[in-house]
Design a protein around this nucleic acid. Structure first.
Lengths: 212, 212
DNA sequence: GAAGTTAGCGGACCGCAGTCCGCTTCGTCA
DNA sequence: TGACGAAGCGGACTGCGGTCCGCTAACTTC
């Protein structure tokens, strides 16, 4: 199996401050426009909801051309992903180097359960943003670098735990955790706690139980 | 637990609008236009692929206004669903009244595996059509009557097999079988046979493997 | 500081999904 | 058979996501 998964993709820089520096040299106006766009998007999403916010509106509010928006973020989903990148990075950090059971050190089955819980919490914090970031041409979300990270992590854990077909089971698990599905469950009134319990149960069921 | 699941909606029949109309009498021109539209769609999908076919093109080929198309089928996904409805109904029939292990008579865990195999076969027969039928506003596919049927069937089997959280596990299983996911696996070169084996394995893992 | 290079800008433009509404034609009933 | 109500029609229209390309201004070089 491969080494440590790759981090979140590039192009998603500082949310509102000089926290993380852009990887490559970036022109001054480019940096300025990027933070303007992110700020405008955040505002509009808060004011009128994610679904009702158009890219034209974001561009106008940011005082920027639409072309700029698209060169920077690719598409609407990319814009959402950029807004989520900080939280996503935190979660990735917790997985790679944080304390057990999410981070290294705990037995793989335990880590998998912890991942499910953390991933659910991550999603619940900005449901509609996550949903938007996963919306797009069919299959697009399965090709994004962030998805590759989660997949590889789960694959590794399932493999270590001795589950058959770890790669496929990892994707099956992630399919159950897709934003569309989770939002559907929440909308129809499922108790978040019960949901958490049931989904960790699914994760546990995917590794063979060794009990006599 | 509920009785037998409801069958597919009225085949996306007359009424078109949300809520599905009563199976009322259908006007002659309406019937003629519907079959024309379906024929035109089938042709164009075959000629230039599903993705490249626009609703305008279907309307033009059918010699019908776009409004007619939309009243009849609701949206593009509905058109695809209508083209699939016959096969879907066959599968539903096989579940409700066909021979075991898909139909009644076999133990629930066995029926669940048979369902996964049959559902995969159903999808594989028209991958892109199924994909189109599941494309749309987020969560839309989870609210369609056909989805309700599969969900209820799986829920019932899992419940009979004594699995915990049968309703949620049913949806988790179906999420792994979503067209987007399956098409992704096939596109990336997975062997269909191996896929079938691995996914039935997932289904089996979702029911308790040993008697408590 | 001046000239050159090019990354980046931005808004006009396009294609398509989906809506609207005045007109047509079907089925019915006398 | 003629007339009437309404189910159904259809194409112009809207709104939005995404692209294109001539222009601007930020860095580089001398």
């Amino acid at each position: 199996m491969a080494g440590p998964p790759t981090p979140l993709g590039p192009g998603v820089g500082p949310g509102g401050g000089p926290g993380a520096g852009p990887p490559a040299r970036e022109r001054a106006d480019a940096a300025r426009n990027r933070s303007r766009a992110l700020a405008a998007a955040e505002e509009l999403f808060a004011e009128q909801g994610v679904a009702a916010t158009t890219m034209d509106a974001v561009a106008a509010r940011a005082g920027v051309g639409k072309g700029t928006l698209y060169r920077r973020f690719g598409d609407k989903a990319g814009l959402a992903a950029a807004l989520l990148s900080e939280r996503g990075r935190e979660l990735q950090q917790g997985i790679l180097a944080g304390p057990p059971p999410l981070g290294p050190g705990a037995p793989p089955a335990r880590r998998l359960v912890a991942f499910v819980e953390a991933y659910l919490a991550f999603q619940s914090s900005r449901v509609d943003l996550v949903l938007l970031s996963e919306t797009g041409p069919p299959g697009a979300r399965l090709r994004k670098p962030s998805y590759a990270f989660w997949r590889q992590h789960c694959t590794l854990l399932l493999s270590q735990a001795g589950a058959p077909d770890p790669a496929l089971r990892a994707e099956a698990l992630l399919a159950s955790l897709a934003a569309e599905q989770v939002q559907h469950w929440l909308r129809e009134g499922r108790d978040p706690e019960a949901l958490r319990g049931a989904l960790t149960g699914v994760a546990a069921a995917l590794v063979p139980s060794r009990d006599p």
